[in-house]
Simulated assay, not measured.
Amino acid sequence: MRILLVEDDAALSLGVARGLEREGWQVDVLHDGEQALSEGVMGQYDLGILDLGLPRRDGMEVLRHWRAKGARMPVLLLTARDELSDRVQGLDAGADDYLVKPFDLPELLARIRALKRRSQGRIDEHLQLGELRLDLVHRELTHCGQRIALSPRELALTEMLMQKPGRVVPKDSIVAGMSSWEADFSENSVEVYVHRLRKRFAALGVVIRTVRGFGYLMELAPPNGAADTDESS
């Protein structure tokens, strides 16, 4: 997937671009709204990430121009504007999603994956394992209809594991997916978050197992409740 990132904050754009590239996506970065007026309508991008507070041309103007010229790629807005009216204005102008700064990279990646699924006509916007259900659009985890409060990184790790139920998710993939531009996410950090989720899910009929030397997998607990999760690694 080829992504156009339009963000005037050099440090932020560099961190976001690196995170996207770790996912295997090709990223072109622009820092100016005037440049983005032409780049976004060429039909060469699968998705646009657009900051609203751009120099020379406001991001909202760029978005309206793209849509007026027939650009159909999904567009995710990044902005420090947290007013409801700003969000509504952006969505009405043709945005497909909206993320308020500051944000965590795992949430941005999850939203991009959701936009990609929708653009490909995949309408299933949730993951399910037993009674555990993850709403990928509203970023909400529930069990038997009851909401489970998780941090953004806990939610991101849960999504990675629920995407491959019963299959191993490599530890290095988790590290890459949960790193941010502020600091790299270490393997020790992954173990800490896995331990937290195990405690949260212990009574919900779901276990996270360690596969030594490889990574982790999530699956339903056996009926007898004897789940060896091997928390030593």
Rank of each mutant, 00 (worst) to 15 (best):
L12V: 04
L12I: 03
L14G: 11
L14V: 01
G15K: 03
R18P: 00
R18L: 08
G24H: 15
G24C: 07
W25A: 05
W25C: 09
W25S: 08
V29S: 07
H31L: 05
H31I: 00
G33S: 02
E34M: 12
E34F: 06
L37P: 15
E39G: 01
V41L: 03
D46M: 01
L47P: 13
D51F: 06
D51I: 05
G53M: 08
P55D: 10
R56H: 09
R57I: 10
G59K: 03
M60T: 04
E61S: 13
L63S: 04
W66H: 06
W66T: 00
A68E: 13
A68N: 12
A71Y: 09
R72I: 14
R72F: 05
P74R: 12
P74Q: 14
L76I: 06
L78Q: 02
T79P: 00
T79D: 03
A80F: 03
A80C: 02
E83Y: 05
E83L: 08
R87M: 15
R87W: 00
V88A: 12
L91M: 15
A93Q: 07
A93E: 09
G94V: 14
D96H: 03
D97K: 06
Y98F: 11
Y98R: 02
L99Q: 11
L99E: 03
V100D: 13
V100S: 11
F103W: 06
D104M: 11
L105Y: 03
P106D: 06
L108D: 05
L108E: 06
A110E: 08
R111F: 08
R111C: 10
A114Y: 12
R117L: 14
R118F: 08
S119V: 09
